[in-house]
Design a protein around this nucleic acid. Structure first.
Length: 547
RNA sequence: GCGCCAGUAGCUCAGUCGGACAGAGCAGCGGCCUUCUAAGCCGCGGGUCGUGGGUUCGAGUCCCGCCUGGCGCGCCA
């Protein structure tokens, strides 16, 4: 439409050209400026040698009248603002109501497969608050993909070989011997949490002193892995998180996938043997240094890095359109190395998308708590859920973009739980639920189809709420495409705020007014309620009928 | 020293591929329940967008330097 106006202006000689530069049409930040705005005149001003406002006026003069617009004007430095007629919005709202779920959740991922790897905590201890951010972020991304039509695989990768797991086994053995009343030297860097004692006590209960002379660590390690995983699964269940696939390091090695990677790297001359270890050559890959892939020593064990590469190759080979990984900031360098190796192996890394989140800073009583699993100086995710509840935990973790540090003040979270934004949004839903209960009591039935509702009775304020609802689908798409789920809770807070404001005005009563008006308002209220339900469900947060 | 992320109101943070006077919540002060839920609403005060340059018609947003904080630079993961 704007293009057509530009062409007419060019033909009539009032403008020297059709816009070369790209211009955009979008809703302005300040709705007072209109429903849509374009910067076309600003973009063209320079080449035209005329002030932007003059160019805007010329273009405006060429725009054909249409009953969809109620107003077109030039504002600010030369924006052309469009205001749509109420009739336009009414028909959009009817269309949304007709389309139902396909309106709210556009199926942009139809026919595509997405894999989301997240949490991936090694079974060395209970999940901490830091893991919680990863878990909720990954799960919500998976929910967004599912909702928009992707076929999603949720995957958990963990290391069960290597040094840390040996240390875990040694820690359990020491506690086991202690429990039997023997003197045992606890490993210097061992895991000191109470849960290690619990696992050891379990071994005593099951085996008595039979493992007293067991020098192998494996039974202790295996017992720990089993017990800790049971604990992790319980916590995930509380958070409404499940996984479809678990992949681990030892299986990848057993399947020969790690050996295959090493052979391929060797074939390409990317390996070098030094100090009894096998190294990945950094120089030909553009890396700043070499990296150890196989440790020296009699066992020739791979480092964590090698199965990690094998795992990523495996993921790419499984035919996903998207391979998403959610990692903490401490893994970013390592992940870049993995990607570099994948590229060097001529693999197509286009499906890979990575979400890096910054750490959760924990404050308790004004003091920063440094989290360390080994030293057992941490707050567990379970403790956090006990304190504030699942809904608050999930909502809170999603309230910041992943690039930002998340400051979690435990006292504040507990004390202010009733004022948390999640309750604010849920309250809006509960109020709407109440309205519908009252409507039923009053015998008001929603009409069968939206075409029966007299939307022309809606006020400007009500149309305003409608406009916000109509923006929901594009918000969801932006969350999916940018991998930024934090936009959703912010949207829900804004929608709830606009609704609370509306609801509090006595003139806006939904029930107890003239029937046709009441039905029109119920139609709008229904759309708001559905929007809240869709949004909260995507976040894994309850939409309560009563509060 | 090198790399990545961040620096926006007293505090915690938004700011959607640069766009119109920079927003929200909390904290502070003052108002609003006879009528669909006051976990709500209304009003007031509060910011050199870390800093110095640059690009642009236009910069919180892009580029470069510097400062501050977090993370990483293990034969740990």
């Amino acid at each position: 439409m704007i293009d057509a106006a530009l062409v007419r202006a060019r033909v009539s000689g009032r403008l020297s050209q059709v816009a070369k530069a790209r211009f955009i049409v979008e809703p302005p930040k300040d709705p007072a400026h209109g429903d849509y705005a374009t910067n076309v005149a600003l973009v063209m001003a320079r080449d035209e040698g005329k002030p932007a406002r003059d160019v805007a006026a010329i273009i405006k003069g060429e725009l054909v009248a249409s009953d969809e617009f109620s107003e077109v004007n030039v504002g600010g430095p030369g924006f052309i603002n469009f205001r749509m007629a109420a009739k336009f919005w009414q028909s959009e709202l009817r269309r949304a109501a007709d389309a139902g779920e396909s309106f709210f959740l556009p199926k942009v991922g139809q026919g595509k497969k997405a894999q989301v790897e997240f949490l991936s905590a090694n079974p060395t201890g209970p999940l901490t608050v830091g893991h919680g951010r990863n878990a909720v972020l990954g799960d919500t991304i998976a929910r967004l993909y599912e909702a928009t039509g992707f076929e999603v695989t949720r995957e958990y990768y963990f290391n069960n070989g290597g040094r840390q797991m040996k240390l875990l086994g040694a820690s359990v053995r020491a506690r086991y011997l202690e429990a039997l009343g023997e003197k045992a030297s606890f490993p210097e860097e061992g895991y000191q949490g109470q849960y290690i004692r619990d696992i050891a006590a379990g071994l005593v209960a099951r085996h008595g002193g039979a493992l007293r002379d067991q020098t192998e660590l494996e039974p202790f390690r295996a017992a720990a892995e089993e017990a800790i995983f049971a604990d992790i699964h319980r916590t995930c269940e509380r958070l409404k998180i499940r996984f479809d696939v678990y992949t681990n390091e030892l299986d990848l090695i057993a399947q020969g996938k790690v050996a295959r990677v090493l052979a391929e790297l060797e074939r390409r001359g990317l390996l070098v043997e030094r100090d009894g270890a096998v190294w990945l050559r950094g120089e030909p890959l553009g890396l700043s240094k070499d990296e150890v892939l196989i440790r020296s020593g009699p066992d020739r064990e791979p480092t964590y890095r090698t199965p990690d590469i094998a795992y990523h190759i495996d993921k790419l080979a499984r035919g996903f359109d998207l391979v998403v990984g959610v990692f903490g900031a401490d893994h970013i360098a390592e992940h870049k190395t993995v990607i570099t190796v994948l590229k060097a192996l001529d693999l197509n890394i286009a499906p890979i998308r990575t979400v890096i989140y910054q750490f959760v800073t924990l404050t308790r009583a004004g003091q920063k708590v440094k989290m360390s699993t080994r030293k057992a100086n941490y707050v567990t995710l379970d403790e956090l859920i006990d304190e504030v509840g699942v809904d608050v935990v999930r909502f809170f973790f999603l309230l910041r973009k992943s690039d930002s540090h998340l400051d979690f003040d435990l006292e504040l979270a507990t004390r202010q739980a009733p004022e948390n934004p999640v309750f604010y949004v849920q309250y809006a839903h509960a109020r709407l639920a109440s309205v519908f209960r009252e409507a039923r009591k009053a015998g008001l039935a929603l009409p069968e189809g939206p075409e029966e509702v007299k939307l022309e009775l809606l006020s400007e304020e009500e149309i305003g709420l409608g406009k916000r609802i109509l923006r929901f689908p594009e918000l969801i798409i932006s969350c999916v495409e940018e991998l930024e789920p934090h936009r959703l809770p912010f949207y829900l807070i804004e929608l709830a705020a606009e609704f609370h404001r509306y609801y509090n005005k006595p003139v806006n009563r939904i029930i107890g007014v003239q029937t046709e008006l009441s039905r029109a308002r119920l139609f709008l209220a229904g759309l708001i309620k559905r929007t809240l339900v869709h949004g909260l469900t995507l976040l894994g947060v309850e939409a309560p009928e009563r509060m």
